[in-house]
């Protein structure tokens, strides 16, 4: 069996490839459902309290948000290059692009951390220290609750994705993807999904209805 490139439960490598890809897509659907719970809450509250939400987004740093969006899109690009390199069996190119993706991911999280610390500094974190309620009767905190829950869940997914990148990097070093690069492909799918979530979060949280 050891000469085969597929696990014992499969009959052919094609069957294994089909199964793992289907598994990943099914997993991404569960991820969509996970985020959709929060998107439903966002849509509902935004409809109820549009003014507080506009006020809330105007306290977010569009510049940093835009930079982060670009960073993530670039990381998706380097991830594509990594998958491409894996398909061609180029070990160095895989590793180079994985590192680039990882660095861009770190930049994203770093900028996110800066943004979070500004919010702490400005007392825009929900809870007893929240200091900017003004006329909005709690709804501003609702916006920031959603902001932290959604971007926090997203950042958590980024961290998991970066763990996977490190794993791929080590495996690539051992030449694991010479024959079968499905793992790189699957992590790529996951990484693109996480980017895609941000592509929704950014306009919803930072841009929509904002006084520019």
């Amino acid at each position: 069996m050891s000469t085969h490139t597929h696990a014992h439960q499969f009959d052919t490598p094609q069957q294994q490839h089909q199964a793992t890809r289907l598994g990943m897509w099914a997993f991404l659907i569960t991820e969509v459902m996970l985020f959709s719970g929060m998107f439903v809450a966002y849509i509902l509250y935004r409809t109820w309290y549009p003014e507080a939400f506009i006020e809330g987004s105007s306290h977010l740093d569009v510049m940093l948000g835009t930079i982060n969006t670009l960073v993530l899109i670039s990381s998706s690009f380097t991830m594509v290059l990594a998958v491409h390199a894996a398909a061609e069996g180029k070990k160095q190119a895989i590793q180079k692009n994985l590192v680039l993706t990882l660095v861009l991911g770190l930049v994203f999280l770093g900028i996110k951390a800066v943004e979070y610390s500004h919010k702490f500094h400005d007392h825009l974190v929900p809870g007893p220290n929240f200091a900017h309620e003004g006329i909005h009767g709690g709804h501003l905190q609702l916006f920031y609750s959603l902001y932290f829950a959604m971007t926090g869940t997203h950042a958590f997914h980024m961290i998991i994705g970066m763990g996977l990148l490190v794993y791929l990097f080590i495996r690539a070093g051992k030449g694991a993807f010479n024959k079968d690069h499905t793992a790189v492909e699957l992590v790529g799918l996951y990484w693109h999904f996480v980017d895609l979530v941000w592509i929704f979060l950014f306009p919803l949280l930072y841009l929509l209805g904002r006084h520019l």
Partner: peptide, 29 residues
């Protein structure tokens, strides 16, 4: 299942960090 997972987590976040997504005092539902 993912929907109930995130919902339960939001409750935990509300207790832990005051992210009051369902808190009526903040206008939550």
């Amino acid at each position: 299942t993912p929907v109930v997972s995130i919902t339960i987590i939001l409750v935990a976040l509300e207790r832990l960090f005051h992210l009051g997504i369902f808190d009526p005092a903040l206008g939550g539902d």
